[in-house]
Design a protein around this nucleic acid. Structure first.
Lengths: 107, 107
DNA sequence: AGTATATGTAACTTTTGGATTACGCAAATA
DNA sequence: TATTTGCGTAATCCAAAAGTTACATATACT
């Protein structure tokens, strides 16, 4: 499905993949047990998993013929940084507004 | 370009739109002044702006024939909540690991 | 050994998103 | 008033993503 590695933002752009991450936040799951939660075919799920794995959102542990998927923090880091940049933006904007107001009031 | 309203995650999935948000974090800009920063045609930029607007990432103020785009917090909220959910996940995971370790050591 | 299960991969189709060009319109300007 | 400027929209194209079916493989089970 995806040879050209998607960046973290594109990866979570897909609702199914976000749902998978949610499910995995409750429990480590095999590909099949994950697939039970979706309408799509098993290979489709398999491809999403590969994308999540490649982008560092999950790790995979092979146990016999099963593959257990577990959340991994790496993929989330880029997103956190991005969000935190704008967090800071809003905070400093509030501060500016605040000091502006204080100046007005003190005059 | 996009009748089916994209959700916040899909909106920031596009690198150009992320770049637009970055630019707007420095300054409010008109469509044209924004477009100068991109290789694509002006209408293409215009469509991205519409998407950002619809998803609540920016507000638009019409001044004469110009349209000033300004960052708006709404669109970011959904993303923050999503990220913070997983933040909590990692934190609690660390805690569990910690107590587990403490138990082992104290035995 | 033979069968069932868990999964990956390849080939292909469909859908959708992003980009372009061509055009229209309102506001500013000459 | 005629022209230029700043923008939106419609029609269309193209590429990429997501899905499906068919098949291959390794492990587990009987």
């Amino acid at each position: 499905m995806a040879q050209p590695t998607l960046d973290a933002f594109q990866v979570i752009g897909d609702p199914s993949r976000r749902k998978m991450l949610r499910l995995l936040s409750k429990d480590s799951l095999t590909i099949n047990s994950l697939a039970e939660n979706f309408d799509m075919s098993r290979p489709a799920v398999s491809k999403h998993i590969k994308i999540l794995y490649t982008a560092g959102f999950i790790s995979i542990q092979d146990i016999g013929r099963e593959r257990y998927c577990t959340l991994k923090q790496d993929g989330f880091n880029e997103l956190q940084e991005w969000i935190s940049y704008f967090d800071k933006f809003w905070i400093s904007k509030l501060k500016k507004l605040e000091t502006l107001l204080n100046n007005k009031l003190s005059k």
